[in-house]
Amino acid sequence: MSLDLKKLIEEEGLLFTLPELAMKINSIVNDPEGTFEDLAEVISRDVGLSIQLLKIVNSGLYNFQEPVGTISHAISIVGMVQLRDLAVGSIIINTFKELPSQTISMKSFWEHSIATGIAAQTLAIYKKELNPERFYMAGLLHEIGRLVLLVKFQADIDKVIQQNYNDATPAHIIENNLLEVDHCLIGEALLESWNLPKYQQEVVRYHHNPMESEKFSVEASIVHFGDIIAHLLNHSKSGEHYIPQIAVDAWGNIGIPVEMLPTILRVVAERYEEVIASYFA
């Protein structure tokens, strides 16, 4: 590869730095000595974030019987890892919500990303994956590399979008032809620079071709189909005009009967309406 991805991300400096709060939250969860109380304390200090997280935990994403009123309570029922994912996800969305772009509306971008996260999590639940919640974050971030492209190569991205529409060629292929890099690779590099888990990095890299992931092809397949479902439900405004190529072979990794799809889509559509309100009230 002729482009140095690490350098590319570093050059953008602060813009693509994960805010300190997210770094702190991430490091507490990664630290074997980090405790439940440490995490609750750090999150609770940010009132806006705490309110947003409580809204999400009380939304249809979880369907808890009793309302959850505090961050400590939220951690005790969803777990530290999952609350970390929700918190870091919220911080990333809030950080990049205002990214100036004439090409792609940031609201649409995140709506599609959130729909993908919900769809991936729902597929994981029906697949009876352990910790299906972790797929929310993986789905949420699957297109994050596109934001770097938008900032760094604005004019080229306009061309990519135009060519994607005119020639019906997948965007990542045009990006590769034009820039020798694509949003999948950049996303992987960005998540690596943020010290997010390895499986999330791989999922972002292989969300268009999940069977090529050596270690995490199941995870990548779940997010791949989450992305397809988000497109189907009409949240397809992330810069791709067409429904991406469906990796039919990867459906075997999901192992859910095709007849379940209508039910899964209905669940995703219902959850989406509730969750989206937590982010864009």
């Binding site: 019906a168 997948p170 397809i228 497109h231 189907l232 439900l233 009409n234 397809s236 005009h241 067409y242 429904i243 991406p244 190529q245 469906i246 039919v248 459906w251 095709v258 799809l261 209508p262 889509l265 559509a269």
Partner: peptide, 28 residues
Amino acid sequence: SHLFKLNDVNVPLTKEFFRLAVGYTIRN
């Protein structure tokens, strides 16, 4: 049909996604 241009809708799995996409297009 336009949105599925990158896909072969004769493949059974894709056919089901297409059928659902039509349903949601009307629903939306």
